[in-house]
Nucleic acid binder design. Structure first.
Lengths: 197, 197
DNA sequence: CTCGCAACCTACCGACTATTCGGTAATCGT
DNA sequence: ACGATTACCGAATAGTCGGTAGGTTGCGAG
């Protein structure tokens, strides 16, 4: 059926990885198909042979990255449930993968623009992630968080801290201890209930 | 001396406001000088008569916006010091100014890219803002924060929460109560010290 | 009333953009 | 060996980009 078994899929993945790099360096708007093609030794038309448009290429890049991220998150939790410690581990892992963090920071912010091809992707992603994170928090800390917070409030705050720290870290890696600050936030959530006066 | 007193300055400001709008809609890379010019009824070269390059135009847009933001922050604190409540007020104010929030979210994320003209601006801005915010926190809450946090740790977390919430809010304004969640985070910082076991 | 300059404009440049069309060469199953 | 399919590439399309050069117009100062 297929000539060289999986040759097409290999080529496609090669292109996707190059595309992620270029998106990380220049953002989606600033990236050109030609520059991605150059990186894999193809012509611009060669890339478009595998992906019908720049939009679709972006969509597949995001899908692939999400799969891999899920691997990192789920693998350590093998056999056990995912905990806040697992999430802190992901932040630590990210601190060693600047390119990937940069691509997601830039692309997610870009996606808030009207008619951006990744808008729906990120909107849905945040929605489901928040619901899922709220359950992780509830499972570990219960319903009673400090200052009367609910897990449904803590979840969006958690992602806000992750994203916001990434931005500051990308601008000044030497000044920002991203994993340390994230753990500091976690300890804020884990603190025992407050004493009334 | 000047023909129409301040005519030039008025025109410049007109252009800056239009530029902020376009940057908010398309980001810096995606925005064209021509589209900004169209909005003020000039040709592309008319805009370049007032600002020598796109880079410089961006620089002045950011400077102007920062001034205005400072006004909002300082005005309510008239006579008194700036408090965490003032900051919460700024978040509330932002929740009514989608365009401005969007422009800053997109531009700050874009600025992490190599050779981006706004890189230094945002890097410096975050640096000074963190130092300043740490002092606001220390003045109001002292050195003893929940979970053993220092004001120097709380400050970057605070900006992370602000920025991260903005991103989620821009993607799903109906799902995210930005000011409410920010206040929830503040209450985490204000909670009394934990009871050991 | 004239000089000079500010405020624009048209015209243009070279480079780059995503995408389409029409090929060619290699390789596959048969 | 042969038709079909795949994997490309060259060239062209129809723009857009930021920026420059060189003008024209109209107002203000002298």
């Amino acid at each position: 059926m297929v000539r060289r078994r999986g040759a097409r899929e290999n080529r496609r993945e090669e292109i996707l990885l190059a595309a992620l790099d270029v998106f990380a360096e220049r953002g989606y708007t600033g990236a050109s198909i030609a520059s991605i093609a150059e990186r894999v030794g193809l012509s611009q038309q060669g890339v478009l042979h595998y992906f019908p448009s720049k939009d679709r290429l972006l969509a597949e890049v995001l899908r692939l990255r999400d799969e891999r991220n899920l691997d990192v998150l789920v693998l350590p939790g093998e056999g056990g449930a995912i905990t806040l410690e697992t999430v802190a581990g992901l932040v630590e892992y990210n601190a060693q993968r600047r390119g990937i963090v940069q691509s997601f920071t830039v692309l997610s912010a870009e996606s808030v623009l009207e008619d951006h091809p990744a808008r729906d992707f990120f909107k849905e992603r945040y929605g489901t992630s928040r619901a899922w994170m709220a359950e992780v928090i509830r499972a570990e800390l219960g319903d009673e968080l400090p200052a009367g917070l609910t897990p449904e409030q803590a979840a969006p705050l958690m992602f806000a801290v992750m994203d916001g720290l990434q931005l500051q870290w990308l601008l000044a890696p030497d000044d920002i201890d991203m994993p340390g600050l994230f753990r500091a936030f976690l300890s804020l959530l884990r603190a025992r209930r407050s004493v009334s006066e």
